[in-house]
Design a protein around this nucleic acid. Structure first.
Lengths: 219, 219
DNA sequence: GTCTATAAGCGGATAGAC
DNA sequence: GTCTATCCGCTTATAGAC
């Protein structure tokens, strides 16, 4: 699944005590915030430790190396990123399913932009820690959803564009508000935390998706 | 415009000789490729020097510090990134103008994905070197284009979504193919260099833009 | 302009006391 | 589990010969 990992806990401290688990969580939270902003190499572990209220040495007690910590953060964030996609299922009406997916993704961009940015940074580096996953779990999931979209196409329930692009563009538009939040706020003065702004963004994305999937008859 | 710069050439070597200028160009090219992949902190200047066929010390003769080199790369890449937006002008038909813009942006994503990734990385860091620009030149340009889109709206020539979102979504979709190229290729096995794939992506984006700007009458 | 050598500092990681 | 002290490698940047 993830490259460079031997066993799930191999690079981390052994036991599960009360304070131990709490500290691990605080470290992981602080690490996500830092890594998502400044990347692996741009983040210093003493910054993470300070954010988590620990000393650098103490952090290294819980996570033996910076890289092991980074991998732990990546692993913990994976499911959160993938989960909305799983919810597109054959049992739903295509339009409702896509609208639901877009909404979930935009909520994720609002509620946990760090997850989006972490993966964006990792992919832009060439995804050295995720390449196995992109070729594996993610590809399997995407292939399944693409097959479903093709099925809907064959039934004439959605439009004719290549399904991969539909998924890419949904990812692109929703994640843009997380990944480029600084730019969005700089240009508009607003963020997704503003409900009216969220709704504007959502409606525009839904209109775009409609254009791709239920677009105007070309005849 | 750019934070931290005194005068245009202050941090660089003085003269413009034949080999000098050629070396500077090769360094800037190599630096763009590296910075766009691994970011400022993740890139070592001896890697850039090696790519450019020079020694590290020699690189530091042309650019006194790594940061000065990074700024020079950023500055040189700015225009390339902004220029397509300037071409949306009032004299054109809205649909043609937007289609032209989308096409230019997707060509840029294909032909110079590094430029897109460099700015993506910079914005995700919080744009410390670009914040002045986002609040300045870029905002002025975007405001002007948003005003034009609102004008077209008032004339009933394009749809009703907030123009900012239309621009954001065009950026998001086109730049996705540059910024997430590794993921796109991992999931589809194809790249924008494949003309058929380029055309698929372009048509899907144009359909999305149509959905936002010329969407189906809601009545 | 380009080289060799080296200074200087940062940051990850370890040792060992408590 | 947490601390102090320290080591060590890596990378930027400089000095000075050619």
């Amino acid at each position: 699944m993830l490259a460079g990992t031997d066993s799930p806990q191999s690079a981390t401290a052994p036991r599960t005590t009360a304070t131990g688990e709490a500290n691990r969580e605080r470290i992981l939270d602080a690490a996500l915030a830092r890594f998502a902003r400044t990347g692996l190499s741009g983040t210093r572990i003493d910054e993470i430790a300070a954010d988590a209220g620990l000393s650098k040495t103490n952090l290294l007690y819980y996570f033996r190396t910076k890289n092991a910590l980074y991998l732990a953060v990546l692993r913990r964030t994976l499911e959160m990123w993938l989960e909305p996609l799983r919810q597109i299922d054959a049992g739903r009406d295509p339009q409702a399913a896509l609208a639901h997916y877009v909404t979930r993704k935009l909520e994720a961009a609002r509620d946990c932009p760090e997850a989006s940015r972490l993966f964006a940074l990792e992919v832009m580096r060439g995804a050295p820690m995720l390449s196995g996953m992109i070729a594996g779990d993610l590809k399997d999931l995407v292939d399944a959803k693409v097959a479903l979209l093709r099925h809907w196409q064959a039934e004439g329930r959605i439009g004719v564009h290549e399904p991969h692009h539909l998924l890419f563009h949904i990812w692109a538009m929703t994640q843009h508000y997380a990944d480029f939040a600084v730019q969005v706020e700089g240009l508009t003065g607003r963020t997704l935390d503003d409900p009216a702004f969220f709704e504007q963004a959502l409606q525009a994305i839904l209109a775009a998706v409609s254009g791709m999937a239920f677009g105007p008859p070309k005849d």
